[in-house]
């Protein structure tokens, strides 16, 4: 049993090393990214049913823009996410607005549009699977997938 566990961990480490984390692809044929707030850029968060950038979000975006200025060869995909409340289709559109709000702001800070793209995952990829206020607050986010 213990040997099996060690083997599993080793396999996991190997597969993570193999992925090089450029695309964060998990397994063969796996077409959606793993959720996780890792990566060099910090997530920003939103109020319920809102895509407005608050002061804290703008601070984080300024830091993210500075990092992108220093790492000019890197590209970023802005992922818009929602909490589980509300219906999936509306949340897909809301996630798209959230991703675009951040991309527009980054562009206004001088990040070239050609280095950025957006994708909405609606409520489909929660960071925290719990069903409470603090989980929902974490899940209403833009994640910056640096490539």
């Amino acid at each position: 049993m213990r040997i099996l566990k060690v083997l599993l961990v080793a396999a996991l480490v190997l597969s993570m090393a193999a992925c090089s984390c450029r695309t964060r692809k998990v397994g063969p044929g796996d077409n959606i990214p793993l959720t996780g707030d890792g990566g060099p850029l910090k997530d920003i968060n939103f109020a319920f049913d809102s895509s407005a950038l608050d002061a804290r979000a703008k601070e984080i975006l300024k830091a993210n823009a500075a990092w992108l200025a220093e790492n000019s060869s890197r590209r970023v995909q802005v992922e818009g996410h929602c909490d589980e409340r509300g219906t999936n289709e509306y949340n897909m559109a809301l996630g798209s607005r959230r991703a675009n709000a951040a991309m527009d702001y980054l562009r206004s800070l001088g990040v070239q549009a050609s280095r950025m793209s957006t994708v909405s995952y609606g409520e489909e990829l929660p960071l925290d699977p719990a069903h409470n206020e603090s989980a929902w607050a974490r899940n209403r986010r833009d994640h910056f997938n640096v490539q």
Binding site: S51, E89, M92, A93, R97, N100, S120
Partner: peptide, 9 residues
């Protein structure tokens, strides 16, 4: 259908 692009849907 509905199409979202550039923040509009």
């Amino acid at each position: 259908a509905s199409v979202s692009q550039g923040g509009d849907s």
